[in-house]
Simulated scan of single mutants.
Amino acid sequence: MLMQGKGREARIHYMAGTFRLLSDGDHVPCAVTGARIPLEELRYWSVARQEPYVDAAASLAAEERARR
């Protein structure tokens, strides 16, 4: 399933502990850095903001930004 939509950005619904593909793709852009995140490497996201993050540092930056 992850190989469909090769080269395209996926649309995802983020849930607690998992996510659901809404449209085929193989990556998503980090909401903080813009870095391309392959779906098989996606580990960090916000359910409340429906945003993906490339790593823990980007996730923390998004949390700090949201608190302002």
Rank of each mutant, 00 (worst) to 15 (best):
T18R: 15
L2E: 15
E41K: 13
A61G: 06
L42K: 05
T33P: 11
A10S: 01
V28G: 04
S46W: 00
E64I: 11
P52E: 07
V54Q: 09
P52W: 07
V54G: 03
R8L: 13
A62Q: 01
F19R: 05
R67K: 09
E63V: 15
R11Q: 11
R36K: 14
L39T: 09
H27Q: 07
E40A: 10
Y53D: 02
E51K: 07
V54M: 05
Y44H: 15
A66E: 11
V47Q: 00
S59P: 01
F19L: 09
C30S: 08
R43K: 15
M3F: 13
E51P: 00
A16P: 08
R67G: 08
R11L: 08
L39K: 05
A56H: 12
M1P: 07
A66N: 09
S46L: 00
M15A: 12
M15C: 14
G34E: 06
H13K: 15
E63W: 14
I37D: 03
I37A: 04
R67Y: 09
R43G: 06
A35F: 06
I37F: 05
A57F: 10
A66I: 04
G25D: 06
M1R: 07
A48F: 00
I12M: 01
H27G: 05
D55V: 04
T18D: 13
R36G: 05
V54W: 07
L39D: 07
K6D: 11
A10Q: 03
K6Y: 12
A61P: 05
E63P: 08
A66L: 06
A57V: 14
F19V: 01
Q50L: 02
G25L: 01
S46T: 01
G17H: 03
G25E: 05
A57Y: 13
A61T: 11
S59A: 14
E51Q: 13
S59G: 06
R65P: 01
S46A: 07
D55Y: 03
A57Q: 13
Y44W: 15
E51F: 02
R68P: 07
E41G: 06
V54H: 13
V47D: 00
D55K: 02
A31I: 03
I12T: 06
L22H: 04
M15F: 08
R67E: 08
R8Q: 13
V28E: 08
V32G: 03
R49G: 07
V32S: 10
V54D: 09
L2P: 04
M3E: 11
F19N: 03
R11K: 15
T33G: 11
A61Q: 12
A48W: 01
R20W: 09
V32H: 13
M3N: 13
S46M: 03
A35C: 05
G7Y: 03
Q4Y: 09
R68A: 14
H13I: 12
I37R: 01
R36Q: 13
G17T: 02
H13R: 15
A35Q: 14
E9T: 07
L22W: 02
L22D: 12
R8T: 10
I37W: 04
Q4C: 02
L39M: 05
L21V: 15
R43A: 15
